[in-house]
Design a protein around this nucleic acid. Structure first.
Length: 489
RNA sequence: GGCCCGUUAGUCUAGCGGUGAGGACGCCGCCCUCUCAAGGCGGAGAUCACGGGUUCGAAUCCCGUACGGGCUACCA
């Protein structure tokens, strides 16, 4: 049996949870759950300028909303903490000491200006633009003296003499090779003593015993230098798996320029977490050649890195919307009411505390709404007429239906026939309304549309008979009567 | 500039040497129908980026080219 799987998602709190980050988190989570492993959440907040506690909180809440629970991380200690890089200075210092004694690192006194200049020069000649290793030649005693005198310096990782090409097996892309001569003596500790990203991640991943690093494609080129750090530290190498990017429709990295790019944007727009997880899971991974609706348990039972595709995927908002509709429609009335109640409350249609006593009524409404809505935020406009005392008839609808020849006659008959009903069920209402065309000689289409406009204010609404039943006899009849004579105004 | 990665319909994908290149979103049409949806049925849409190989046979293997993306920071 192999070592227990430990994976991590390590967002940088420089913004909220991005769609791309969410997919990375989903894959890590699914992989951990699939293998009975541990999902670690680590906050890579070493960018002091842009990291904020608010962003961290937003990321945690977005992950929770998606249902991606972590076994170790903020608010879930697992013995490998702390889980904020800014609290791990001791680890980095310890790692640096280890590298010093192993002679795997050396101080560099070059100024930022010098480095930029040499880089530009190298780039202009078309050769390797890495650090020329100037300070590597400074002997240890001289270096110690200069450090003691307070001269600013960084620490660079020494690419071992005679190190061959760096070759590793990427779980999604296969063998990756980086030639030895492009390996760079990169900076691991900045002049202010803080670690650079490439070093901090390796130290943390090693200490946290991460076995599989599943992350974005943008880190692929960083992998060889990280591998060098693992080797210098004497730590076992994890398996790497690089995910391709998620693009906007223009083939550029998905960003706010393309519209909603954060998980919470979708939450606020009325998307369900289960639909977003399903959609994102499929953006770069597939179960087989035909399955598209995959719930979380199914994802967990089937997720594997070898079915992750190598090519970038364009985020298709329309498909997500369709999928959200599928989840909405698949809900039971009870489930749908649970999602609908907060929406009604926010829209000021039905107070949260009044919802329980009208639960039965809401459950009757639910199936009518759920099958014609793709997002939760479409609900309120659709059902407002059922909650309001009166309804304002849409101008176009009035002109098109109420002012039609015969509409008044039909409305009169509708009101009478409804009024006569004892049992105001959809079936009874339907039977009653269906008798109107014959009795009045008005075409059925007009009869139904007139009733619809009178009651809902629009030519497009939830199904008529059910709507009337939901509205109740009194209000239904009143609205139909109110509509009569509207064409004389 | 250098290095790395990618390329199957508008989009997401299946495919892993022999298929009529399969599915999904979107689009179009028909059916159902009290409107709108949903649902059912059908359709259009892919010279598998291009050019060379290897092979009896290539979307699948190899090499180039083009295009796109990433990295190349004392950002992550």
């Amino acid at each position: 049996m192999s070592d227990p799987v430990r994976v991590r998602f390590a967002p940088s709190p420089t913004g909220h949870l991005h769609i791309g980050g969410a997919r990375t988190a989903i894959y890590n989570w699914a992989f951990a759950r699939r293998h009975g492993g541990t999902f670690v959440l680590r906050i890579d907040d070493t960018d002091a300028e842009r990291s904020t506690p608010e962003n961290t909180a937003a990321i945690l809440s977005a992950l929770r909303w998606l249902g991606l629970d972590w076994d170790e991380g903020p608010e879930a200690d697992g013995g490998h903490g702390p889980y904020f890089q800014t609290q791990r200075a001791a680890s980095y210092a310890r790692a640096l000491e280890r590298l010093k004694t192993a002679d795997a690192v050396y101080p560099c006194f070059c100024s930022a200006e010098e480095l930029t200049a040499s880089r530009e020069a190298a780039r202009a000649t078309g050769t390797f633009a890495g650090y020329p290793r100037s300070c590597r030649a400074i002997d240890a005693d001289a270096a110690t003296t200069r450090i003691a005198s307070g001269e600013p310096h960084t620490w660079r990782l020494k690419v071992p003499e005679g190190r061959g090409d760096v070759v590793f097996e990427d779980a999604v892309r296969g063998t990756s090779t980086f030639a030895a001569d492009v390996l760079d003596d990169y900076i691991v500790i900045r002049s202010d003593g803080t670690p650079t990203y490439n070093f901090a991640t390796v130290v943390d991943d090693a200490e946290m015993e991460i076995t599989h690093i599943i992350r974005g494609d943008d880190h692929l080129s960083n992998t060889p230098r990280q591998i060098l750090a693992y080797e210098a530290l004497g730590a076992p190498l994890p398996t790497f798996a690089h995910l391709s990017m998620i693009w906007g429709p223009d083939g550029k990295r998905l960003s706010k320029r393309h519209g909603a790019a954060n998980v919470e944007d979708y939450r606020d727009a009325g998307y369900l977490p289960e639909a977003l997880v399903n959609y994102l899971a499929l953006l770069g991974w597939s179960l087989d050649d035909k399955t598209t609706i995959i719930d979380a348990p199914t994802l967990v039972a089937n997720f594997s890195l070898d079915r992750v595709s190598k090519n970038p995927a364009v985020f298709d908002a329309e498909k997500l919307e369709w999928m959200n509709g599928v989840y909405l429609r698949d809900m039971t009335a009870e489930e749908f009411v649970d999602r609908m109640a907060p929406v009604l409350s926010d829209a000021g249609l039905l107070a949260e505390e009044d919802a329980p006593e009208r639960r039965e009524w809401l459950c009757e409404l639910a199936p009518l709404v759920s099958e014609r809505v793709k997002r939760l935020d479409e609900i309120a406009p659709m059902v407002t007429f059922l909650f309001a005392d009166t309804v304002t008839i849409d101008e176009a609808a009035r002109a098109k239906v109420i002012e039609k020849e015969g509409a008044d006659v039909a409305l009169e008959a509708i009101a009478n026939v409804l009024e006569a009903l004892d049992d105001f069920t959809p079936e009874a209402v339907e039977t009653a309304l269906r008798s109107v065309p014959e009795a009045t000689g008005v075409k059925p289409k007009l009869v139904f549309q007139a009733a619809r406009v009178a009651v809902s204010g629009s030519t497009v609404s939830l199904p008529l008979f059910e709507s009337l039943a939901l509205l109740g006899k009194e209000r239904s009849v009143a609205r139909v009567r109110d509509a009569i004579g509207e064409n004389h105004t």
